[in-house]
């Protein structure tokens, strides 16, 4: 499996990782909407309702709408989810600074819920099978 689909597989577990984390869901209670996570060429569409992850779908998509997108190298996502990530890969904003990720679209809902979104995207940390070196 190439790295993009491996990242998508990890992201598919977001509902289990997020929805049982009551403080995290509470922090996202004012956010409902769709965003896109991209790993290399693989797009993953995430739908949130009041802090709960309602759906995670892997593309390609036709005419799929989203409010904002977080695009990164698939290898950067895998490094982001290592138990102790290396400097620059430990935070989504750090990844943008490093040049391995970028934020696009309507950034207002992202910035208004930045802690929540960052914690959702970091939720697979330590749970990512692809980060553990498995083939």
């Amino acid at each position: 499996m190439t790295m993009g689909p491996r990242v998508a597989e990890t992201l598919s577990r977001l509902p289990a990782l997020v929805n049982h984390d009551a403080p995290l869901v509470r922090r996202g209670r004012f956010f409902s909407g769709d965003f896109l996570v991209e790993a290399d060429q693989t797009p993953v569409h995430v739908r949130v309702h009041e802090g709960r992850i309602e759906a995670v779908e892997t593309g390609p998509f036709r005419m799929r709408a989203w409010r904002f997108a977080i695009r990164a190298d698939a290898s950067a996502w895998i490094r982001h989810w290592e138990p102790i990530p290396a400097p620059g890969y430990h935070d989504v904003i750090a990844m943008t600074r490093l040049g391995v990720a970028r934020l696009e679209g309507d950034l207002q809902p992202l910035m208004a819920n930045l802690r929540y979104i960052k914690e959702v995207l970091a939720a697979p940390r330590g749970h990512d099978r692809s980060a553990g070196g498995e083939a």
Partner: peptide, 20 residues
């Protein structure tokens, strides 16, 4: 006005704290 200042300031710098 449409982004909470305290929340976003902390969220922007949170990654500047080392994981350890």
């Amino acid at each position: 006005s449409d982004v909470h200042g305290g929340e976003v300031c902390a969220a922007m710098v949170s990654g500047l704290v080392a994981p350890q």
